[in-house]
Design a protein around this nucleic acid. Structure first.
Lengths: 193, 193
DNA sequence: CTCGGCATGTAATCCGTTACATGATTCT
DNA sequence: AGAATCATGTAACGGATTACATGCCGAG
């Protein structure tokens, strides 16, 4: 059985994935969040360092003091076999409807790290297929909701609420297009070429 | 000065806006979150009822026992003048870059309630203009990041990370198109017609 | 030897989640 | 009276935010 709790926070998974990419220190990890599009998974020290401590306490990562070239020595973390197992388990998780509707960004994080999955290409294709199916279903739902909004406000020409809903619909449709094209690319190249 | 803390949680603003639309009970508010696209602002009772208590304690909403037709009587909340003031203050907030990059969904919530802003049409246009400007800037940034990714992984044909980044870019571009069209519609009709 | 910048950490506070418990009314 | 249902509440817990504090090294 895996050490620590069964389910981890999004931030923890983000850290695990980044460390899997290459061994890194807390400071480097923080810079990734601050400087790249991965902001939003939070880069505050008050979140990262405790999370790293938890992961190390649960044996998923291991830190080694790295005599820095200048300044205070960094503590470089690398993934343990247990950590690799947790990563694989996460990547193998099915894509649920709630994931798509409520936590799409965590899903995209998972997609990004699907590169490290065992049998990566197959898993990636499955992931995208499932994502597409749920996005399609969601679109149907949202179109029904927009009809409800229209019915409720017959006289008013454009309500803010309707426009906001349209933004949501458009964004789902956009992601669906993305998924289809991504899958097409993976299907032809097999992810390798 | 306004009672209570200066800044409120997204959930609280969502509640304030919905109550502004029409007086509602906690149960009704919960249904809105569960049944509509507003899920994601959380609909758990453990979040809603305490939030309503906070708002009432701070004098932003006022609940009155409403003898229900069946079942336990509902507690119907309506906005107080202080609550209206807080709502207006929130709606008048400038659109910052961090809002756009990190909290786009809260921004869309604000947009939806901009219908209730004093001088709604003008504020809406300003909101959209500012949103567009920040989205454009963000797009430039993200395109630079994708070049960095390309430089880092020259040989590999499609990396998952690059695809995930493309999804983000596409989604920002999509929202930008939405904002432009929304503004066009508001400009011509003046939001009324 | 202290200054400044790199790197890590911590303390207070607060909100949301989950799961459970309770209140109030009608129907049978 | 009890069941069913509508509606509200609460208790335990954990993690994120914010703001601050500390450690360690080289340069001057």
């Amino acid at each position: 059985m895996t050490p620590g709790r069964a389910v981890r926070t999004t931030l923890e998974y983000a850290l695990i994935g980044l460390i899997r990419q290459m061994p890194r220190s807390g400071y480097e990890l923080r810079k990734v969040f601050v400087e790249t599009a991965m902001a939003g998974y939070s880069g505050s020290p008050g979140a990262i360092y405790p999370a790293l401590r938890r992961l190390e306490a649960d044996g998923l990562i291991q830190g080694t003091k790295q005599p820095g070239e200048r300044g205070r020595p960094r503590r470089e973390y690398r993934l343990t076999p247990a950590g690799e197992a947790v990563l694989q388990e996460w990547l193998a998780q099915p894509v649920t409807r709630d994931d798509v509707a409520l936590r799409l960004d965590e899903l995209m994080l998972r997609f990004a790290f699907l590169a490290y999955a065992a049998d990566s290409t197959r898993r990636t294709l499955e992931f995208l297929e499932s994502l597409e199916a749920h996005l399609e279903a969601l679109l149907v739902d949202l179109h029904q909701q927009i009809e409800a909004v229209d019915a409720a406000s017959r006289h008013v020409p454009i309500t803010h609420a309707r426009l906001a809903l349209e933004a949501g619909i458009s964004s789902i449709a956009d992601r669906l297009r993305w998924a289809r094209e991504a899958r097409a690319r993976f299907s032809t190249t097999g992810g390798k070429e």
